[in-house]
Amino acid sequence: MLSIENLNKTFNIQILNNIQVHGCSNVSFKVDSGQFFALAGSSGKGKSTVLKCIYRTYLPGSGHIWYDSANYGRIDLACAPERILLDIRSREMGYVSQFLNVIPRVSAIDLVMEPIIVRNGVSHANARERACNLLEKLHIPHELFNAYPATFSGGEQQRINIARAIGWKPRLLLLDEPTASLDAKSINQVLNLLSELRGQGTTMVGIFHDQEIMNKTASQTYTL
């Protein structure tokens, strides 16, 4: 489903005398559909850079990111037009960041419901049911459903983040340390949900802060 060929990324910081910051170099791997693919490697090797290049939050320097899109067929995300990228993001490809990056003044439940309504085209009631279900599985207390996540604890925020990213069942999900700020119990809940999602057909590429979790979860790994 995803085939990365010789991906390189260097950041050229012009406002700091053009210093060149290493992103990632010569990254090549293939992810088959249905896999939980893990990126490993020590800090600074460019794991997050690779994920962000796939999502095109970073502009790839050179190389190819071939993706078998449900809508567009085989397409190189490294150079696909912006509009197509946005469309793929909204229909097929999700991304879970390490931190909550959400819209201010929107309640937890609305945050989770929004992509379900917009992307899956289901009714309000239906989306609410799915969102509640998800938040319950993640053990978010009921009284927080209608509160703004800005004031939540780090772990709660991260679980909202995950719920928002997986609620709409993307076809390809990119995960950047999704369990980093969670306690052992929440980690298990999240991993269970992810494996449930994988069972429903979502392909995943993830980075884990914990070797043990990675070994337990990933079906394949690539070391940068």
């Binding site: 950041f11 012009q14 406002i15 939050t57 970073y58 502009l59 912006e82």
Partner: peptide
């Protein structure tokens, strides 16, 4: 010009970098 998250996280032009910084 680009995707907004790209402009914010990987600005290419010197001036965009300044703006973000």
């Amino acid at each position: 010009s680009g995707l907004t998250d790209q402009i914010l996280q990987d600005p290419q032009h010197r001036y965009s970098q300044l703006l973000v910084a």
